[in-house]
Structures are given as C-alpha cells and as structure tokens.
Amino acid sequence: MDTKSLIINIATTLFQQKGYIGVGLSEILKACDLSKGSFYHHFPNGKEELLIACLHTLNEVITKDIEEIFELYPTTQEATNRMIEKLNVNFETEGTITGFTFSSIISEIASLSETVRGADSDLYSKMQRIYSNKLAADGFPKESAESIELMMKASMEGGIMLCLTQKARNPLKVISQVLLNLLKEFKKIHE
C-alpha cells in the first residue's frame, strides 16, 4: 500500500472513531509513523483535504458494497434485510460499524465547509440512486420510490448511530423489522 493510501485508511478509521475535530494532526502523524513534511507532500491543503480524500474513499467502498447487495437480491426487502444483517454482523464482530457510516465524521464539519458538504452530498446521492432504482424495479412509482428510499436511508443511518452510542445492536434489529414491514405494506398499496 502506498503512503497516501495508508494515510487515508488510518485517518478514516480515526475520524470514524473520534470525529473530525476529535482527531488532531499529530495523532494522524503518529498513527501513520509520518513526518509533517511527508503528510503535507500528500495533502498540501492539510487535514480538510485529507478528510475529503477519506470521504471519497468511503464513497467508493460504501457504494460498491450497497450496489453488490442490491444487485444480488431480487427485491428491495431482501436486499435491505441483507444489508442490515451485514451491519449487525460487523457490529457484533468488531464492536463498531466503521466503513458503513460517515455521519460521525461529517456531522461536525459539513456545515462549515462547502467542499466537505459536497463530498457528503455525493455519497448520499449515490445511495439514493441505488435504493430508488431497486424500488422502481420492484414496481414502486418514481415519487414513492424517492420518498421510501429517503426513509430507508435516514432509518439506517440513525440506526447505525444509535448502535454506536448505545453499544448495542438492537436499534438496527428493530429498524430492520420495521423497514421490512413498511416495505411489504407499501408494496401492497402499489400492486
């Protein structure tokens, strides 16, 4: 792995664990065993540029994973259930859900930086497209698909944050059951 990728991987984990403001440059340098000069060689604009690189990397990883799950399963209900199961397994084995959420990273800085907000918006837009396309393939009208996917995304992001703050997987279990029931009911309405 090259130095820049190493910095991004380590910083992403640190940002997810402690938030953007909670991680100082000195902590990143120490964790990467790096000098300031080497860091600024890769990220001349500093920590915010690194954050944006981390968000782009998360964007690719999260989008790819969600696309694979939603392509593998024939219905939105099955794909959503599998995705939440995967989040629960990650939580049980790792005690956290890094890699699937970036809310903890951007919640404190997105309103301060247009560049960070844009990187965040890009990921959410990609997630929306994946969910909406699957819902449309399930026969939901476009307007309904867009509303439902917004509810799905907000529920899952909220569930992840609740799991992290409560150190328990129950919030995602409950959300999984509720989402699946709601999707079944919405499906009945649109048949």
Rank of each mutant, 00 (worst) to 15 (best):
M156P: 02
N133E: 12
S104C: 10
E108H: 09
M127Q: 06
S125L: 02
S107A: 12
L164I: 13
E114R: 14
V116D: 04
V116S: 10
A110H: 01
C163G: 07
N133M: 02
S103W: 02
F140Q: 04
D120W: 15
L150H: 05
S155F: 11
P141M: 00
R117S: 12
A119Q: 09
E114M: 14
K153S: 08
A137G: 09
T115Q: 09
L150I: 06
R129Q: 13
L135N: 08
A145I: 01
L162I: 05
D138T: 01
A145D: 01
E143N: 11
M151V: 10
I160D: 05
S132I: 13
A119N: 04
E149D: 05
L164R: 08
M127T: 08
K153V: 14
T115N: 11
S132Y: 01
A136H: 01
A119S: 13
E108L: 09
E146G: 06
L135I: 00
P141G: 00
S103P: 09
S144H: 10
K134S: 04
L150P: 09
R129E: 05
D120V: 04
I109Y: 14
S155D: 02
L112K: 15
R117T: 03
I160A: 02
K126V: 06
S144N: 09
S103Y: 09
M161S: 13
Y131E: 01
A136M: 11
E157L: 01
I148M: 00
T115E: 13
